[in-house]
Design a protein around this nucleic acid. Structure first.
Lengths: 247, 247
DNA sequence: AGCTCAATGTGTGGCAACGCACATAAGGCT
DNA sequence: AGCCTTATGTGCGTTGCCACACATTGAGCT
């Protein structure tokens, strides 16, 4: 895995949080941002592990989830180029009881723990961005909790596809039903059935390990309210982040 | 509702976060802390509402939950004297998409939004306490998401009873099964059944609107791992908070 | 003491998701 | 081209929780 130091500003701008930093703050970090490959399935951290880096995904997506003693798991939130992996570094806990795994292969910029903390503690824009992002993360988690309680597998699959799609440049997801099932914490067969219905409805098209979204609107109408709630709240909290560009 | 200004330090010390503040920081807040009654069922905030105060529960417990369009709901976390209600005030979002309702009547100390933000931004101990507390809250939320997915109503009831008990001075909870059902997002009949089993097992005893825990150990053995995970993580993140006392 | 209403108990039928056990097929490999 | 692993399809029976419809009881009130 080739780590490329001093990445071009182009890469940094693919992560919304980094892109929103004023030049001064960005410059302090730039030299220390490493572009790293995020291969599918890579474990970014495990429960209790001391995290060494914060990751700002550019093209990758990371899934935050908890694995039960029984082996079954459930995702509480995903992190794409709108956010950062490693919240606990500046929250003061250093680690968490959940895991982080790469759900969509791609790249991320990583920053040493100490440097992140240092910049966070300056109390500049990075701090306020990260705090707002953290609140958005909490919204996703609590919405996931409610969604897990009340909505059908099919609805949840739609929600998940849409949230993932929002973090992708294209309409194609490279992922198996088995993995999706792991994310949602349901049986693989449940995903096969739900995906089959969505395909027959013409909303998606899939083959082994590959899902194409054909009708976004259709998915939205089948998804539960949870997708809209999360999306709206992300926009409310972070809309300025997506557009502001440093000079 | 009589608001008593300049509460005795005794009250403040009932909230772990306030109690852990060094004298200097505490003094800046003390004169502005109002002791307020928290009657059962009172809505502290609704989605989208601009929050005016942060609440530090002393003897009350507040439930953070989301209400769906269908009317059904689910709790993502509870807040007792270990924490604070109104995270969004310092996270920068000002409001959230969830609600906060008093689940156990009692008291709380409240602090004006502006003053909280001011003290938070000084970057002193209050900031780091609140951030660590927020991380503990996130642990609860993501654990609740996983728990909602995988565990039985009975297990979840045990978890909920234990977490509530940990925030109470006694072993008696004043709450109806109907309300508990609302917290867990299940049918009232489901709680009746599960509670009946727990009672027959000798773990609890209940009458209308009143639950007494007789065998804490029994509940722990029936609860899912989620209770232990949350408790352990709370302790890891906040153990110094509970013991440190200001001079 | 009796009334009354909210809280709790119980039953029936239905359904979504489960666990398990396979059958089938599709893509990468040599 | 053929093989072989891995992904997907399908069919059971089972179960936990659901919605709905009541019966019963307890606590507080007058």
């Amino acid at each position: 895995m080739a780590n490329i130091h001093i990445p071009q500003r182009q890469h940094s701008s693919q992560n919304h949080l980094l892109a929103a930093l004023p030049t001064e703050e960005y410059e302090r970090l730039a030299a220390n941002l490493e572009l790293v490959a995020m291969p599918l399935g890579e474990m970014i951290y495990e429960p209790g592990m001391q995290l060494q880096y914060a990751y700002f995904p550019t093209s990758s997506i990371v899934s935050l989830h908890y694995v039960m003693e029984s082996g079954s798991s459930a995702e509480s939130s995903g992190v794409g180029n709108e956010g950062m992996v490693g919240i606990s570094l500046f929250m003061g806990g250093d680690t968490t009881s959940s895991s982080a795994v790469v759900q969509t292969a791609g790249y991320a910029l990583r920053l040493e723990r100490r440097l992140l903390k240092q910049e966070f503690d300056r109390g500049g824009l990075l701090q306020s961005l990260l705090l707002r992002y953290t609140q958005a993360l909490m919204t996703q988690m609590s919405q996931t909790a409610a969604c897990n309680r009340h909505h059908s597998v099919e609805q949840q699959l739609c929600r998940w596809l849409l949230l993932t799609l929002d973090r992708m440049p294209s309409n194609d997801l490279i992922i198996t039903q088995e993995l999706v099932a792991g994310m949602l914490g349901v049986r693989r067969e449940g995903i096969t059935e739900a995906a089959g219905r969505l395909q027959r409805a013409g909303f998606i098209n899939y083959r082994r390990g590959h899902i194409s979204v054909l009708d976004r609107h259709g998915l939205e109408s089948t998804a539960c309210e949870c997708y809209a709630v999360v999306k709206k709240e992300m926009h409310r909290l972070l809309s300025d982040v997506q557009y502001r560009q440093s000079a």
